[in-house]
């Protein structure tokens, strides 16, 4: 077990460093963030909140900012993570690693966590900048612990879910196809509540975090009409569980595929 953990930790640290050093991640995320902020400055609701920060309950402001980031940025997050496995294949690192006695599953978990954390860093930075501005403008230091709670409860489970699928599924799907599908999924399964068309956006499977946001903090910008804390916990646990499960399944499928070759 210790050996497996060492492999997991090694892969995690390596993937984290490697993804952090990729200028693409920072440039793409920065451009998407600037685009998002630029658009938001034209959205009346956003400018209203920004202009009257002190008049809104501080929790609502913090949750609004958290939800806003989780609205668009996971799209870029998922797309940027989708080429990690393909890169290993292209550079033949996968062969090198397969030839080692280390656990494949532990490596895939390490890859998933390390690269997900690194890709989430630009999101965390923007989140902290926003929270800093909220604290500076309202003078309310309580926003800081609230921000910790909203980030942990709303953003992290969603990013874990997206990260797990984006890192592992391209083992069996052509990367551009996955990326195209992911954009469609994010819209249909998280942000959109169509009339008559079945959707995941109102179920606890939505990684955008509507259930946690509404269930724990009483407000949300996602299409979740009603949610209590229990449903929030359910959604959070289901998302984390599915993240771990999909990595495990893909790892086993890859091993099975290798054994067949």
């Amino acid at each position: 077990m210790n050996e497996k953990f060492a492999v997991f930790w090694g892969a995690c640290a390596y993937e984290f460093k490697m993804q952090c050093k990729r200028p693409t991640v920072w440039v793409a995320m920065l451009l998407v963030e600037l685009f998002m902020i630029g658009i938001m400055t034209r959205v009346p609701e956003f400018t209203n909140v920004l202009g009257h920060l002190k008049q809104f309950p501080i929790l609502r402001v913090v949750v609004y900012w958290t939800d806003l980031l989780n609205y668009i940025l996971p799209v870029a997050f998922g797309i940027l993570l989708a080429d990690r496995l393909q890169r290993d294949k292209r550079t033949r690192v996968d062969e090198l690693l397969t030839a080692t006695p280390s656990s494949h599953t532990a490596r895939l978990y390490g890859k998933f966590l390390g690269s997900s954390i690194a890709t989430a860093l630009p999101i965390l930075l923007l989140f902290l900048i926003g929270i800093g501005i909220i604290v500076a403008l309202t003078g309310n230091i309580v926003a800081l612990p609230m921000a910790l709670a909203t980030f942990a409860a709303v953003i992290i489970p969603g990013l874990l879910f997206v990260g797990a699928f984006s890192v592992s599924l391209p083992a069996f799907i052509w990367v551009p196809l996955y990326q195209i599908g992911f954009v469609g999924y994010w819209f249909w399964g998280n942000l959109y509540q169509p009339k008559g068309i079945p959707t995941l956006s109102t179920s606890i499977l939505t990684p955008a975090g509507g259930y946690m946001s509404l269930g724990f903090f009483g407000t949300s910008i996602f299409p979740v009409a009603k949610a209590n804390a229990i449903q929030g916990i359910e959604s959070l646990l289901v998302l984390v569980f599915l993240s771990l499960l999909v990595v495990l399944i893909i790892s086993k499928l890859q091993k099975w595929q290798q054994a067949k070759m």
Partner: peptide
């Protein structure tokens, strides 16, 4: 960006917005 994924991330965000 000299990168397909970066470009796709930008396109994806534009599409959602």
């Amino acid at each position: 960006t000299r990168n397909r994924s970066a470009s796709s991330a930008i396109l994806g965000a534009i599409w959602i917005v």
